[in-house]
């Protein structure tokens, strides 16, 4: 009975979305040739804009690097505060809730707010990435701390190791690979997500996508798109290689 109801609800939702949106059958019909026309105007990609592409990609890379760097610094502090193993509930609980709220705000919204407050350029992009990435990274760091096995640390305590020595030789060896892996994962995400920052004026390659599409220079937009795809695939390949090396 409930199963039927679920199917009816799903079907109803699709019909509602389809009929109320402005996508009549006539529009759908004419969309196909227009899409074809659009694609035809993208080819061949115009590579004469490669200096702009390079400039945009390098700026995006810089935004991702600095955004990750500052996110790591912030997460080192917030991650420790969010660790159940280190702090009482009245500290880690609110910190974790705060991080969850940060994670819930999409990057592009953060970026628009940052552009509004500090103006155009890479700076709002860096701030947006820092803010957004910290929400995830600090949570990961806290989990890395919480997952440290206590046995080996107790053993060092029993040996007579100082607090600093316990941290260096008991806790850090357990945490380091996890933290490194999480940070690299987040850097890769930052790079991908910062590609679109330029669309809202927060610096990087996204600006050129925006500019070329708006000015109907689809062949140039195509070149930028191809460059972005290459960058993403490249960063993914490097990330996978590094992660395999660090087991």
């Amino acid at each position: 009975m409930t199963r039927h109801l679920i199917w009816v609800l799903i079907g109803g939702a699709i019909l509602w979305a389809g009929f109320s949106a402005d996508i009549g059958t006539d529009k759908l019909g004419s969309a196909a040739p227009r899409l074809g026309n659009f694609l035809a105007r993208m080819f061949p990609p115009d590579w004469s804009v490669w200096p702009e592409i390079l400039k945009g990609l390098l700026e995006t890379l810089r935004i991702a690097i600095l955004g990750t760097f500052f996110a790591v610094l912030l997460s080192a502090v917030l991650g420790v505060l969010a660790a159940e193993a280190l702090f009482p509930g009245y500290i880690w609980r609110p910190v974790r809730s705060g991080l969850a709220i940060i994670r819930a705000i999409p990057l592009i919204v953060v970026a628009m707010l940052m552009v509004g407050s500090v103006g155009l350029g890479p700076l709002p992009g860096i701030l947006a990435i820092t803010f957004h990435a910290t929400g995830m990274l600090a949570k990961f760091y806290a989990e890395a701390i919480d997952n440290v096995a206590s046995g080996p640390v107790t053993a060092l305590q029993s040996v007579g190791a100082s607090r600093a020595q316990q941290l260096r030789w008991g806790i850090w060896p357990q945490m380091a690979p996890v933290i490194l892996r999480d940070t690299m994962f987040r850097f890769e995400l930052n790079l991908r997500e910062s590609l679109v920052l330029g669309i809202v004026g927060a610096g990087g390659i996204g600006l050129y996508v925006q500019t070329y599409v708006r000015s109907f220079q689809y062949d140039k937009a195509a070149a930028v798109t191809v460059a972005i795809i290459v960058l993403v695939l490249l960063s993914e390949a490097i990330s996978v290689k590094l992660q395999n090396k660090m087991k």
Binding site: A155, L156, V159, G160, W169, Q174
Partner: peptide, 25 residues
Amino acid sequence: GFIFQEFALLDRLSVYQNVMNGRLG
């Protein structure tokens, strides 16, 4: 000195460093 039933070693460290940990105190 204490020899733990479940060994309590640092998995990612070398045998040498695990034994050297005994010198930390």
